[in-house]
Simulated assay, not measured.
Amino acid sequence: MIVYNLACENQHPFEGWFSSPADFENQRDRGLVECPVCASKQVERKLHAPRINVGAAPETKREAVEAATQPDGEIDYGKLKEAIAGFAQQVRDNTEYVGERFAEEARAMHYGEKEHRGIRGRTDRETAEALREEGIEFASLPFPVDFPNAH
């Protein structure tokens, strides 16, 4: 499942869980997605950090470590590596790589110049801080997801 940050025409923020970007658009277009505050059906995706929920994924860091911890107390780094690789693949599959244009694309979506979509890319610390000061929501990933098959 993909968790999207959504907002209605009145800018009430809320989350929605969908199996794919097409699933969100299909449900929205059929009037099945509505704001829990005002019941508006004019809902848009907002910029979000990818957060993919697959099966019974751990909800906290503690649960993730416990899931990878063997009975003898040692961490199973193979399980951790597998989980990270799976997440990275989900990010690659559900976002567009915009490379060095990340800040430009994020701003264009934030200010309504472009349609909202999941993107990933690169920016320097100063530009990232400027984006945050503008109220543009994003998250840095703790691992690269733009290689070897960036698209």
Rank of each mutant, 00 (worst) to 15 (best):
L47K: 01
V33E: 05
Q11C: 10
E96M: 13
R51G: 10
T60E: 12
N26C: 09
R101C: 06
A56I: 09
F102I: 10
P148F: 12
N149G: 13
T95P: 05
A128Q: 04
N5P: 05
R101N: 15
P71Q: 05
Y97G: 09
R117W: 03
A56Y: 03
E15P: 00
E9L: 06
L80G: 15
T69P: 01
G31Y: 02
E104G: 13
M109C: 05
M109A: 10
Y97W: 13
A7N: 04
I75V: 15
G73Y: 06
W17H: 06
D146H: 14
I75C: 05
G121Y: 02
T95K: 00
W17N: 10
F14A: 07
Q89H: 04
K79Y: 03
D93K: 02
I75L: 13
E105H: 07
S40I: 12
A150H: 10
A68T: 00
Q70F: 01
E126K: 13
V91W: 02
G99H: 11
T123W: 00
F102V: 03
A39C: 13
T69R: 05
R28Y: 00
Q27Y: 06
D146E: 11
E25D: 15
R62G: 01
V98K: 00
R51L: 08
E133P: 09
C38F: 07
A39G: 02
P71W: 01
Q70L: 08
P144D: 15
N94P: 06
V37T: 14
E44V: 14
S19Q: 10
A88S: 10
K81H: 08
P21I: 00
L131H: 05
A128H: 01
D76R: 02
A49Y: 04
A108W: 07
K81D: 13
L47V: 13
V37I: 14
D146R: 10
A88D: 06
G31T: 03
Y4K: 11
V91C: 06
F102Y: 02
V37W: 08
N53P: 00
